[in-house]
Amino acid sequence: MLQATDENRNATEGEDLFSGAYVVRIAALSPQRIITATVTPLNLGTNEADLEAVVSWEGIDTVSTSVRTALEPGAAYFDPWVRFLHLLSVVLGPKTVPEAKDFGAGKWSSIVLSSQELDGALQHSVVVAVDRELATASLVRSDRARQGAEAAVPRELLQRDAGTVLTEMTSRLIRGRPWQ
Score class of each variant (00 low, 15 high):
residue 114 S to C: 03
residue 89 S to H: 13
residue 82 V to Q: 14
residue 97 V to D: 02
residue 105 A to R: 05
residue 86 H to P: 00
residue 100 A to N: 04
residue 118 L to V: 04
residue 108 W to R: 09
residue 117 E to D: 14
residue 103 F to L: 08
residue 91 V to M: 08
residue 93 G to L: 06
residue 91 V to C: 10
residue 100 A to C: 01
residue 112 V to Y: 04
residue 114 S to K: 07
residue 95 K to F: 12
residue 119 D to R: 09
residue 84 F to T: 02
residue 106 G to V: 03
residue 87 L to M: 14
residue 115 S to G: 14
residue 107 K to S: 15
residue 113 L to G: 05
residue 105 A to G: 09
residue 92 L to D: 12
residue 82 V to N: 15
residue 101 K to Q: 12
residue 82 V to R: 14
residue 89 S to I: 00
residue 93 G to E: 07
residue 107 K to L: 04
residue 88 L to W: 00
residue 114 S to A: 12
residue 90 V to C: 02
residue 97 V to W: 01
residue 97 V to Y: 02
residue 82 V to D: 15
residue 111 I to L: 15
residue 87 L to Y: 06
residue 119 D to N: 11
residue 106 G to Y: 03
residue 99 E to G: 07
residue 90 V to E: 04
residue 100 A to Y: 03
residue 112 V to E: 15
residue 120 G to K: 00
residue 103 F to Y: 09
residue 111 I to F: 05
residue 110 S to E: 03
residue 86 H to V: 13
residue 105 A to D: 12
residue 98 P to T: 11
residue 111 I to R: 05
residue 98 P to Q: 11
residue 91 V to W: 10
residue 83 R to I: 13
residue 108 W to I: 02
residue 109 S to D: 13
residue 109 S to V: 01
residue 93 G to V: 06
residue 90 V to P: 01
residue 109 S to L: 09
residue 105 A to H: 02
residue 99 E to P: 05
residue 108 W to C: 08
residue 115 S to Y: 03
residue 118 L to P: 09
residue 116 Q to F: 05
residue 96 T to L: 05
residue 82 V to K: 11
residue 106 G to A: 03
residue 90 V to S: 00
residue 85 L to T: 06
residue 105 A to E: 11
residue 105 A to T: 00
residue 85 L to N: 15
residue 118 L to M: 14
residue 97 V to Q: 09
residue 96 T to V: 10
residue 114 S to I: 06
residue 97 V to S: 13
residue 97 V to R: 07
residue 118 L to N: 07
residue 111 I to E: 07
residue 93 G to H: 07
residue 109 S to R: 12
residue 95 K to V: 12
residue 100 A to V: 10
residue 89 S to C: 10
residue 94 P to A: 14
residue 104 G to Q: 11
residue 101 K to H: 09
residue 120 G to P: 05
residue 120 G to Q: 02
residue 103 F to C: 08
residue 87 L to G: 10
residue 112 V to C: 14
residue 104 G to R: 06
residue 99 E to L: 04
residue 84 F to Q: 07
residue 94 P to N: 13
residue 100 A to F: 03
residue 85 L to W: 10
residue 100 A to E: 08
residue 101 K to S: 12
residue 118 L to K: 08
residue 109 S to A: 13
residue 84 F to A: 08
residue 90 V to L: 01
residue 88 L to A: 02
